[in-house]
Design a protein around this nucleic acid. Sequence first.
DNA 1: GATTAGCAAG
Length: 639
Amino acid sequence: MNSLFKRLPRKRVAATRRSSRRVHAQPRPHPSLTTFSRLCVEGPLPAALALLSELAAAGLRADPVSLTRLVKLCVRHGTADHGRLIHRHVEAHGPLPHDGAGGLFVSNSLASMYAKFGLLDDALRMFDGMPVRNVVTWTTVVAALASADGRKQEALRFLVAMRRDGVAPNAYTFSSVLGACTTPGMLTAVHASTVKAGLDSDVFVRSSLIDAYVKLGDLDGGRRVFDEMVTRDLVVWNSIIAGFAQSGDGVGAIELFMRMKDAGFSSNQGTLTSVLRACTGMVMLEAGRQVHAHVLKYDRDLILHNALLDMYCKCGSLEDADALFHRMPQRDVISWSTMVSGLAQNGKSVEALRVFDLMKSQGVAPNHVTMVGVLFACSHAGLVEDGWHYFRSMKRLFGIQPEREHHNCMVDLLGRAGKLDEAVEFIHGMSLEPDSVIWRTLLGACRMHKNASLAAYAAREILKLEPDDQGARVLLSNTYADLRQWTDAEKPWKAMRDRGMRKEPGRSWIELEKRVHVFIAGDLSHPCSDTIIQELNRLIGRIKSLGYVPQTEFVLQDLPTEQKEDLLKYHSEKMAIVFGTMHAVDGKPIRIMKNLRICGDCHAFAKLVSKSEGRVIVIRDPVRFHHFQDGACSCGDYW
DNA sequence: GATTAGCAAG
């Protein structure tokens, strides 16, 4: 028993000796270097930075891998100042690019750090100071320049320079530089280079190619790149869906979305955002609601929620927009701006301004887009004094310098309110050179207030800047036609015919059971045309008893009254309204989208049909919404 | 260590 007790401590001693022998056999690194490596991965950043300076003071060199990780940590959790601290350390203690691969790694990551903090010039200084550069170094600056505003040309110059320097661009380089192609010529050249380098089948390169074609307005080009692909990933699918949605082909975008699902991919936030944009563009509220169900699982994605909010606003469903807005876990300036513009476009200017006040009271700073929405609210409600107030004080109160679009809102505000002379004075007093958009706004106001001489002046100014503009000629002609000056009204048409131009026909569409039905003015080719015309005649009969008189003044041609009535009757929005009343579910609003602004006669028609049929009709034109209910419209007949 | 897709207005 005794011996047993005595042996126990000896065993412990032996064990301790063995372990100390192990330590001596494999000397542990300096404890602070080990800790430093760990801190560079796990953080916290301040502790890692403090240890870095301790190491330097002790004459110990941090290894390149840890330093690179530290830079990464700094990008994730720190500021540019933290980055500069690491940069200074590296300059004083190394490793530098000429120290070998490790040094190059560290310098590259520092350049990338500056780029990620938006400090492009620091990144370029870093680049200039590097005695050795590899493809990563070059790609870092190419990518940074390609994504910076107004520096895309430089990105392409760097691509040329790197080749001259004997460094071959790789898939990373190409996928970055493609976004810098601002002309079809550049894009074709870079696309050819990717093929030559054998990199055009890389998914990153391909999705950038698709995006680049689409952004230059060549949707077919993007589609070709997509179709030629053998292997696609989710981002490639998202690129092409986004391309269709951004180009205004909502139906195409949704078709591709279905194909993507058939191909076995499940959507992510990016997919859903683009699909929502497609629904928004086509006023497909029901399809949008279905997307909403999938949005629920991404309850922290603000971009996606903002897109959903915009969809409800632009589909004219303010109840849904409002409910969503209040439920959203976070809201940023885009969420607020979407609500301000959404309410204003739907004829709720006072509510829009109230939301704007609420936004300010919650400490959210408006930006230039918010102010466009605010001014839009003022101009569409005739709130001239408020508009002036916001325009004049936006610089002082919010630090936002009025830009072109804000000036345009002011011309609209004054013009709509009939203050045409003030509008002209405003244009002449602008510090900016007026562009065709501003003149077109003035021209629209001239048409509204039947001022032909000023309309002619505005149209001349537009045509000086854009000789092929159709809209200016159509608006000018319509202004003359409003005044029954048929000879003058004919001249712009003749000019258009001489140039081989045709007016864009009126087009309205409506979503019904996941399908979009399109109606074109005067075109009776829809399969249900016969029944639509019967129903149209019946409705006209009913609303005539409510006081409807076809307002033939909106037919802008010199024709006998009867023919004018016929032309009016087949306006696309009337056919869409009738089709809507024939098929819509009880109690649900009829939602219609139109490519041109609604005419006065169709406006009167819609008001009376909303009364006689007891239905809510929502029509969205390129600028705003009309909610017709019980014989009245949300625009208060002011549009 | 560097790369691709998604949100508000005009």
